[in-house]
Simulated scan of single mutants.
Amino acid sequence: MLKWVVVAAALVAAPFAASAQDVEAGAGVFKKCAACHQIGAEAKNGLGPSLQCVAGKAAGHHEGFAYSDAVKNSGITWTDENLLHWMEKDDAVIKGNKMIFPAGIKNEEDRVNLLAYIKSTCKE
């Protein structure tokens, strides 16, 4: 029985693990975000805050951006899990935030690739 549980877990995890390495695909997905956000060493705030090195930081951390009270007071840290959930449905993570992206990124592989891209640009 244990053997089948291990096999099933490996089959479920394999697509997720493989897609986590697709930084190039994540750069393509980022185009959906680029209307409001910048990323990279010279990234600036725009309609949304810079996403440079956002992973692992507290929500509402980027200096110079006027975050909603909901984000500033959320106590959220941008873990991989929180970022992936936010990309899918931001208002489910922090209700009352002012991000306007109701469609979210529904495809799990796209979210994983986007996260890989965002994390790959951080050179702190």
Rank of each mutant, 00 (worst) to 15 (best):
Q52F: 10
V7F: 15
D110L: 00
S120Q: 06
C36Q: 07
L114V: 01
H62W: 05
G46A: 12
R111A: 01
I118Q: 01
Y67Q: 11
G48N: 07
A27H: 12
A66R: 11
T121M: 01
K89F: 07
M1A: 14
A17W: 15
G60S: 05
C36Y: 07
G26A: 09
G64M: 06
C53G: 08
G40Y: 08
E124S: 15
I105A: 05
E24P: 01
L2Q: 14
N113G: 07
V6F: 13
F30V: 03
G26M: 02
K98Q: 07
G60D: 03
H37R: 14
P15M: 09
A8Q: 04
E81L: 05
A43R: 06
T121C: 00
W4I: 12
E63T: 12
F16D: 04
A103G: 09
V93Y: 03
V54D: 00
F30D: 05
C36A: 09
G46W: 01
K89A: 14
A10L: 15
L47K: 14
S74Y: 05
A17Q: 13
M1T: 08
S50Q: 09
A70T: 11
A8R: 03
A8I: 10
A17H: 11
N82K: 15
I100S: 12
W78Q: 02
V23Y: 04
M99A: 13
A35W: 08
G75W: 01
Y117V: 05
K89G: 09
V7P: 02
G40S: 07
T121D: 01
G75K: 04
V54S: 01
V5K: 04
L11G: 14
E24R: 15
V7S: 08
T121S: 00
A13P: 07
E24C: 10
K72R: 12
F101Y: 13
A41D: 10
A116S: 06
A17R: 10
D91S: 15
L83W: 04
A58T: 12
T79R: 08
Y67W: 15
H62L: 04
S19M: 13
